[in-house]
Design a protein around this nucleic acid. Sequence first.
DNA 1: AAATAATCGAACTAATAGTACAATTATAAT
DNA 2: ATTATAATTGTACTATTAGTTCGATTATTT
Lengths: 210, 210
Amino acid sequence: MKGSKKENLIQFNKQNILLTARKLFVEKGVYQTTMDDIAREANYSKSTIYVYFKSKDEIYNHIVYENMNQLKQGLEEGIQSSSNFEDCYYTICNTLVSFQEKYPLYFESILGEISIDQESFEKMPILRDIYMEGEEINKIIENFLQNAIDNNYIRQDIEVMPTVLALWASICGIISFASKKEVYLQADLKCNKQKFLENGFGLILQSIIR
Amino acid sequence: MKGSKKENLIQFNKQNILLTARKLFVEKGVYQTTMDDIAREANYSKSTIYVYFKSKDEIYNHIVYENMNQLKQGLEEGIQSSSNFEDCYYTICNTLVSFQEKYPLYFESILGEISIDQESFEKMPILRDIYMEGEEINKIIENFLQNAIDNNYIRQDIEVMPTVLALWASICGIISFASKKEVYLQADLKCNKQKFLENGFGLILQSIIR
DNA sequence: AAATAATCGAACTAATAGTACAATTATAAT
DNA sequence: ATTATAATTGTACTATTAGTTCGATTATTT
């Protein structure tokens, strides 16, 4: 079944639609992009769009999934190419920053407005993929932290999993804030985004370091 | 002008509408609540609703403002009734948690999806009030941190303002995460929300403590 | 009682997600 | 080459809802 000519065509069409949606979502915003827009721009009729995707939401979530996958790869590569603990920590942070800058629309979604109940999974299977991709990203950070503990780079008294998630939540919180309040930081605080981020990441690092 | 019988009546009607909207937003969700719903439930005609508020968004933002005001008061009271630095820190955290639990719909908005440009302020004056209320909340946290530095409770090498905001962003990030992923924390991690929060707040505290 | 202001109601526009389905076109099988 | 099958299209449709319009009605003030 897979790899057949037919299956390939289906995937090709899906990708076409997703690419167009991606482009339009960035250009005009998700809400302002209509299904008619996507159909016109991708050169399909609206009916055909609905053959490939059940709803606009499903299109959106497919893009979220692709982005998560990309983020996961970015994290893996970044971690592998890092030489020491601190380097690795900042690489993870910066990968997240780059991701937020590249896909500001999707960053929040990736942080987890995603439901994890069976019913949603059945209604929209891509949600399960998103969930699983999230799990894998967690594991990556978990490994990083466990490694740091084993090698005595950081405090020995921490519980790995809750700390992984708290770290993740804090770092994402800081990135999200920096992005939303960039103008404010610059104007009222004379503190540019980059400096704010470095300061924030440094602070978080202090919380786990030996 | 203010305090006149007429002005009072206007305020009374506005409050009526806001209270109804508040109730319906919680009951059915913001998006699922229509202007017709609000009009019917509040016993005004739709036309009258539009006399008092220019749009649904304006209604929403008025509620956000009221909530921010409440949060500010909560923070002020909490801080005043705290006896020492750590107590105060956790009081601030818990005030935020309570707030998120009481108004989950509005928590994210309060963290700052609010624009701060002149144009938005002119189109919808309540946005300026929201902005200013945010500034005051910042000041409260700033005072708390400055105090702690002065009294040598925490590290002396900290730049106050960026740290205030990084703290705020981290704590809110953790709260937001805990709320969105409560089911996941419980099911997959056997870690209840309360424990996760305590752990997370403790971590953040480590980052500023002496 | 007349003038003014607030409110109402009901019909309207415009936008858009999603559907229905018959007509058309491309692809595959015989 | 012809037929059967599948994919695609176009068009018109439903349903929902934010926001508008405006003449009629009701309440308040003078």
